[in-house]
Design a protein around this nucleic acid. Structure first.
Lengths: 342, 342
DNA sequence: TTGAAAGCGCTAACAA
DNA sequence: TTGTTAGCGCTTTCAA
């Protein structure tokens, strides 16, 4: 059937095929395929004619068919809790740059830290036969693990650490960040503390580690304000107000689960005429871009999200190149950046 | 339990096929296909057996093959300038929710407001035969238009308006936002102004519209600080410092191209002991979440990004359902939200 | 250097 | 309700 009558009811999905190009160039479809994917295996003249035909028709190869035939989709799927949260999107950006540079496309889904959504997303992604999967977090249901193992493709879990990764993981210890914040606070002379926590289970782990360590070293029990929803400048302001109402002592240090809420504390303190760090000291988490520019600068825990994304991407890319995963657990660490706020 | 794929160079892409499931369930492959996509066309007993076999094997259908056979990929591709910029990612989030609810997956690429990158990204995406494309902006090269028209699929251009969309567009007039800011500023009594601009061509269009209108109504020429890189809190602080050095008069109003830089102006003003809006008034753009919580609250131009994403998604979804595009240009408007900063 | 033949795993008619 | 027969547009042998 050389002629396909166009049916306007369903997407035509690019009418031009390799066979069409071949007809135009006076070669077979196979030669077109070669010209496009392995030009060195084709004579200069043929290559020229094929390329002309491609240009003439605006031909775009059908990667679906290619993937089906070759069992290689050149797709990488990425699952993140949220795309609107800069800590994830900037990691994803770094990841994408590298992976895309190797000729892979990215499929993204948001899982919202919801196990069921993650499972559905994984199934949907796997049906597209990605060549690799990026997951956020290291706690996944058995169904997820099973699907992934079944798929037999490289998987990288990020943003946390575990001894039992599905395949390999790149991240840092959340508990250690809490400990580091507590140690820093004690060393800086603070003896009273509070935590402001919003977000996922990892944020709670940071809070718990901070509270345990600080409590032990200071002999005082840190106050806690927790939010269900995700952190924001507004919730930080509100949290400080709440803490103050509860009679939180001046001179305390507040460990926030994100720079957003930490900035909220800064703003609320300024609005109330409280000095930072004199009356209230603040430690954020994430070291977002604005942290260096607040007044005073925000002391925060830096996760190098660019490095995180890059290491994860390279872990996959190396595997594509045939390397065995030499290191299945990669700790990228973190750094407490001291600025004016604590 | 780190696992290794058999040969990482050639992903196995899920060994189980519909035929395998059929063998297990004692039916043909076609019946499995029916059981999975149109269960009502299969007997209850058969359905049961197929589903058992699926569960047993952890079978994940190959959407690549399905798409190739049916000319329907259930993929929607989305191109945005940047994924780390909340104004885009939040729009994308709203868009995704709806589109995903209809069974479509999203492929995302960043174009960085770079025409060539956009062209490459489009080609890469189209090779995957998406059922629709979302583009940011309305200015595209001829090659892009051609590929898109060639693909013969619904295209929605967002975040701007044009009389000549490729297919349909959903956005607002950037010039009008500049005019609205100027009108507001004049009405509020300001007679001196400045602009702080970073980002893309659309931001410059807002600036130019503001400058023209404000200049005409006030008889004074607004000062301008422009940045090449994207806006940040830090660049806002720096810009105010620069403006002050240039002898910018007190009592002026500053129109910023984003809430980030506007917040920077707020922070810098506070650091210098300048009162807002007394000494310096500020108008942002985007009405991001934090704008309501700064001190004072940030007067800003709100674009309802959720509505934008939703309208765009529904425009596509309606087309999938067979509707002709009744409205090819959709103006979602904007709103100037007055808070304390101006 | 090129071509012919055989699938990749599914959906879409059409029959039974 | 189920099965049969053809492809979808490519890549991959194997021949020429």
């Amino acid at each position: 059937m050389a002629f396909r009558p166009a049916d306007p009811r369903k997407p035509r999905h690019g009418g031009v095929t390799m066979a069409d190009i071949g007809r135009l160039a006076g070669v077979t479809q196979v030669t077109v395929s070669r010209a496009l994917s392995t030009p060195e295996k084709v004579s200069a003249e043929t290559l020229e004619r094929v390329r002309n035909a491609v240009r003439q028709t605006g031909y775009v190869p059908n990667a679906l068919a290619g993937a089906l035939a070759s069992s290689k989709s050149n797709l990488v799927s990425a699952l993140v809790p949220s795309i609107t949260n800069v800590v994830y999107s900037s990691m994803l950006h770094a990841f994408s740059e590298i992976v895309r540079g190797r000729g892979y496309q990215i499929m993204v889904s948001e899982t919202g830290a919801d196990a069921e959504r993650e499972e559905q997303a994984i199934a949907a992604h796997l049906s597209r036969r990605p060549d690799a999967v990026l997951l956020t977090g290291v706690k996944h249901g058995p169904a997820v693990r099973r699907m992934l193992v079944n798929a037999a493709i490289p998987v990288v879990e990020i943003w946390d650490l575990t001894d039992t990764p599905i395949d390999c993981c790149v991240g840092f210890s959340h508990a250690e960040t809490g400990h580091a914040a507590a140690d820093f606070a004690i060393e800086a002379g603070y003896r009273q503390a509070a935590t402001i926590t919003a977000g996922d289970e990892r944020a709670r782990r940071r809070r718990d580690a901070f509270t345990a360590r600080f409590g032990k070293l200071s002999g005082t029990v840190p106050l806690a304000v927790d939010f269900d929803h995700s952190a924001s400048l507004g919730s930080g302001r509100q949290a400080l107000a709440q803490l103050l109402e509860q009679g939180a002592p001046k001179g305390m240090v507040i460990f926030c689960s994100s720079d957003q809420s930490a900035q909220g504390v800064l703003v609320e303190a300024a609005a109330r005429g409280l000095s930072v760090p004199g009356d209230i000291a603040v430690i954020g988490f994430g070291d977002q871009e604005f942290a260096a520019s607040t007044e005073p600068g925000l002391t925060s825990i830096r996760i190098d999200r660019h490095v995180l994304g890059s290491v994860a991407a390279n872990a996959l890319v190396d595997r594509f190149a045939g390397a065995e995963a030499p290191e299945t657990v990669h700790d990228i660490g973190f750094e407490l950046i001291r600025r004016g706020s604590a």
